[in-house]
């Protein structure tokens, strides 16, 4: 493995020499991330256990009130608002990932099957939106979904939405914006796997009498698992924590974790509660990432 051989170059030094060089090279970045990443995240965790001050600041004592409120047990009895927001974020994130996967699979196979001449261009066409500002691409759907645009009229004729009204804000608009914005994140890793695929396995399976579904399931799918997993995590995690898309294309009924965090810090000025929601969002991401890294390392061991 090349990485082992790279490490070997440094291994010839004494332990002190290695550590001092590690300190000089990795030290500054480690210090930076310690101050501007670890400390602020620790601060958010600490503040989530404090009480909201009278003028918007924070006060003692330590409580679990913010977390109780997030779980639905507020001062005025059970309120499903925040558990619903949490569930909605996960559901929308999952739906986005599944829809992106369904769209990215044919697209990745399409690009991989093109001749070398067109492959680069087809791939660049996927990369361009990826590099284009997300805010702009999201806001564009407001225009596309506004009343009397042909897309909106077409949707109305299919029985979606109310005639004469815009298609946003709404769950459908949020989901459309999400899939459109995150699709390249799914296509790129998936394409990398499809590109490297050994097609002779599919031929062998077909020769041995497997039908098309079984060829895909047993000969092709195992080969693209790593790309599929990477794409899924690259879409699901950021989609769950999205703020801009539900903010521009959704309303109170489609509020996600990001929107309620922003509310607490901007209008409500309830830092402890905002911090508690942020801490939960962070925990979700860290757990998701840990599961993925564990799965990923298993895949590397496989031949």
């Amino acid at each position: 493995m090349p990485e082992k051989r790279q490490m070997h170059l440094g291994q010839q030094l004494t332990r002190a020499g290695r550590w001092s060089r590690a300190g000089i090279t990795s030290g500054p970045a480690a210090l930076w991330l310690g101050i501007f990443l670890a400390l602020p995240l620790a601060a958010i965790l600490a503040i989530s256990f404090l009480t909201r001050g009278e003028y918007g600041g924070v006060e003692l004592p330590f409580t679990f009130d913010s977390y109780k409120r997030l779980a639905g047990f507020g001062e005025l009895g059970f309120d499903s608002l925040y558990p619903v927001v949490l569930g909605r974020s996960l559901a929308l994130g999952m739906a986005t990932a599944v829809l992106c996967l369904a769209a990215a699979l044919p697209l990745a196979f399409f690009i991989a099957r093109l001749s070398e001449k067109y492959k680069g261009a087809a791939l660049t066409l996927v990369v361009i939106p990826f590099w284009t500002n997300l805010l702009i691409r999201t806001y564009a759907w407001q225009i596309l979904f506004s009343p009397n645009r042909w897309l909106t009229v077409a949707a109305h004729s299919l029985g979606i939405g109310t005639a004469g009204e815009a298609l946003y804000p709404g769950t459908l608009a949020v989901l459309t914006g999400m899939v459109c914005d995150f699709l390249p994140f799914m296509v790129l890793p998936l394409y990398a796997s499809v590109e490297k695929m050994d097609w002779t396995l599919a031929e062998a399976a077909a020769d041995l009498g497997a039908d098309r579904w079984r060829v895909f399931r047993h000969a092709l799918l195992p080969q693209i698992w790593p790309g599929l997993g990477a794409g899924f995590i690259l879409v699901f995690l950021p989609a769950t924590g999205q703020f801009v898309i539900p903010d521009l294309l959704g309303g109170a009924k489609t509020a996600m974790l990001g929107n309620v965090i922003q509310q607490q810090f901007a209008s409500s000025r309830d830092w402890p509660f905002g911090s508690a929601i942020a801490a939960v969002a962070l925990l979700l991401v860290l757990v998701g990432l840990a599961i993925f890294q564990r799965k990923g390392s298993k895949h590397e061991v496989l031949p």
Binding site: I233, P238, T240, I261, Q262, A281, G288
Partner: peptide, 9 residues
């Protein structure tokens, strides 16, 4: 992977 909004706040 940290959501932007968490990093920002």
């Amino acid at each position: 992977f940290v959501p932007d909004i968490v990093l920002a706040t």
